[in-house]
Design a protein around this nucleic acid. Structure first.
Length: 248
DNA sequence: AACGCCGCCAACCGCCTGCAA
DNA sequence: CTTGCAGGCGGTTGGCGGCGT
């Protein structure tokens, strides 16, 4: 029943890894692989470390494809965009960044990006023609669209994806035509900012489709929306339709 | 020079899930 | 079906270095 215990934590070394330990672990994995068993690895390699610690050290620091150094603006955008939409699923976010680990991304978010976003005041409040703010919804350069439901995705040729969304926001009455035009104008600039971020996160329509839980491609190439959910829920539901192009 | 504060980040902790026994 | 370990993950911590006083 069950498996043998992981390790005796009172007998393993803890704390920072020495260069010698790094060398032993690196050489062992390069010569023998992980053997599919991290718990047994330290004993085989001659390390007085817990298997979990070895795994973490390899994945976060010693792997040959690890990308070291600061994050680029593009990477920041991807992280910010994905965080807004899927939350703190660091492993998922890291999978969109070549050579970055979940720990890297998490640390970067907690130490830099979180503050960067919270101090960013270049948000755009949607206003109607009579300059009445549609409170409390705000769009910032780092968020996608709030509370939105995707009605339809359609690929009109090999590279262009058109989508229409049912926009939802908090307002007592439905929008008049004139207000709708104003909203359309304001949304356009907001959408333009966010398209870039979304495009970074999902370079192709297939990237986005695979990310979406219920994304299904039919025989005609139409991407059928199931329970697509962009994540951010701020406003209440009303009626508005918006169309644009995402992947050009 | 000494001290304290603060930011960064490697590493640990604890929980959850999958799966072998 | 039950048990309990391995692996994976996100949250948190603690040590270190830089900077200001």
């Amino acid at each position: 029943m069950g498996r043998s215990p992981c390790c005796d934590k009172t007998k393993v070394k803890r704390g920072p890894w020495s260069p010698e330990e790094d060398t032993i672990l690196r050489n062992h994995i390069q010569n023998h692989g992980t053997g599919g068993n991290w718990i047994a690895l330290p004993h085989k390699a001659g390390l007085k470390r817990c298997g979990k610690s070895c795994r973490l050290r390899w994945l976060n620091y010693l792997r040959p494809d690890i990308k070291l150094g600061g994050f680029t603006e593009e990477e920041d955008d991807i992280i910010s965009s994905l965080f807004v939409n899927i939350g703190s699923r660091w492993s998922v976010i890291a999978s969109h960044l070549q050579g970055r680990t979940d720990n890297d991304v998490k640390n970067h978010w907690n130490t830099k990006l979180k503050k960067k976003l919270s101090t960013s005041h270049n948000s755009t409040t949607i206003k109607t023609n009579n300059e009445t703010s549609i409170s409390p919804i705000q769009f910032t350069s780092s968020t996608f669209l709030p509370k939105q439901e995707v009605d339809r995705y359609q690929i009109t040729n090999n590279s262009v994806l058109e989508y229409s969304m049912k926009m939802n926001y908090q307002q007592e009455s439905t929008i008049s035509n004139s207000n709708s035009n104003s909203f359309n104008s304001n949304m356009s600039s907001s959408l333009q900012e966010n398209q870039g971020l979304l495009h970074n996160a999902f370079p192709t329509r297939n990237d986005y489709a695979s990310w979406c839980d219920n994304g299904v491609m039919d025989l005609d190439g139409d991407l059928l929306a199931g329970d697509f959910d962009f994540g951010q829920v701020i406003g209440e539901v009303s009626n508005f339709n918006y169309s644009s192009q995402l992947w050009l």
